[in-house]
Amino acid sequence: MVIKEDGTMAGRVEGKVAFITGAARGQGRAHALRLAEEGADIIAVDIAAPVEGVVYAPATKEDLDETVRQVEALDRRIVAEIADVRDLEALKGVVDRGVAQLGRLDIVAGNAGIDIMMPWHQFTPEIVRTIIDTNLIGVWNTVMATAHHLIDGGGGSIILTSSANGLKAGPFNLAYNMSKYGVTGVTKSFAMELAKDHVRVNSVHPGGVDTPMAQGLMPDFDTLKDDNPNLLGMMTQWIPGVMEPREISNAVLWLASDESAWVTGHALAIDGGMTQY
């Protein structure tokens, strides 16, 4: 919260509208709630369905409905639809309808992503394409569906979710590493070209976060780590424990707010030191 000139309190993103992908649960839901707590209305999207090759349980329509319920409990407006970030036209439709209903767009959080872990030699072209199409092309689609709304409104903030593995590769995660390094590059490219329109673009790079995706991948990781234990040092962090999604949402909020008005093209690691060595 911030104090206005008249002495009253206002949220740090009061009166703004945020579009969030992968909003049904995990980090996406946490972003929606954190921004809503600070005064933003929300446009939310999630595939809410299985993705081919992904072993952990998918988000559901009921999960997305729960995000809606929790945002509305904060007395904020929310427009939520089911759509796949791999489908640019579907994303454009959701964003356009949300802006028509809520009146504007100021913040974009490209959060949706998947992970499939295995040794390098087991990746197939189909698995690699699914991960790249979701994690990287999906982020590109997100920006392409939203940037003109931010420009028309005089500017805004785009926050794209990469990973600690977008700064330092993680073991048994070849395609995921490819996609998340790509997000880091996409962020800097958009940041350069959109700066003249007062649109800032930054990436966040979470380490280990307690989400359904991370929980669902643990059995696979426990099996894989015995195959090549020398690689486990890549996962070392300085701060012990596992983060809650809200820790990433706090960083998203700062990048969405006017407090970071001169921050663009930046890769912000929230990883307990994992990427520092």
Rank of each mutant, 00 (worst) to 15 (best):
A49D: 07
L160T: 01
A267C: 05
T146G: 00
D46E: 10
F123I: 11
K4R: 13
D115R: 15
D115M: 15
D96T: 11
R129Q: 10
T142H: 05
T236V: 13
N202R: 01
V183F: 11
V204Q: 09
G170K: 02
Y56R: 08
I3D: 09
I270F: 00
V94N: 05
H121F: 05
V51I: 15
A100H: 11
P219S: 13
A109S: 13
I137C: 04
E62G: 08
E62H: 10
M118G: 05
T223A: 15
H149Q: 10
M117C: 14
I43W: 02
A32K: 00
E81S: 03
G156N: 09
G185Q: 03
V54N: 10
G182F: 11
T146D: 03
A175R: 12
V85R: 06
G185S: 01
F190N: 12
A169F: 00
L136Q: 10
Q101V: 01
E38P: 12
F172D: 03
G113D: 00
V128H: 01
D41N: 15
G22N: 01
H148K: 14
L232D: 06
D271R: 02
G208N: 11
A145N: 09
H205R: 12
V263A: 07
T8K: 13
D197W: 02
A112Q: 12
G154W: 12
A175S: 13
G155H: 09
G166H: 08
D106K: 02
D197T: 00
V99C: 02
I131T: 13
N228W: 09
G156M: 06
S189V: 11
K180F: 10
L231V: 09
V139W: 01
K92H: 13
K16I: 04
P171W: 10
G93H: 12
A112F: 14
T275Y: 05
D226H: 07
P58W: 05
N250S: 03
S260P: 03
L33A: 05
R12D: 00
V45Y: 06
H198K: 14
D152T: 10
H149S: 07
V51M: 15
P212S: 06
A145Q: 09
T142G: 01
L253H: 11
W254I: 12
F221V: 05
G138I: 01
Y176K: 04
R69K: 09
D63S: 10
R34D: 06
L33F: 11
G233P: 01
S179Q: 13
L194W: 01
Q237W: 05
I158T: 15
S257V: 08
T21G: 04
G98M: 03
V139C: 07
T67S: 00
W120I: 15
A100D: 08
G113L: 08
K180Q: 07
G233R: 01
K225Q: 15
G166T: 07
D65Q: 09
I3N: 10
M117N: 09
I43Q: 00
D152Q: 06
L33N: 02
D87W: 11
K196Q: 14
K225V: 11
E244S: 13
V55W: 03
R29N: 10
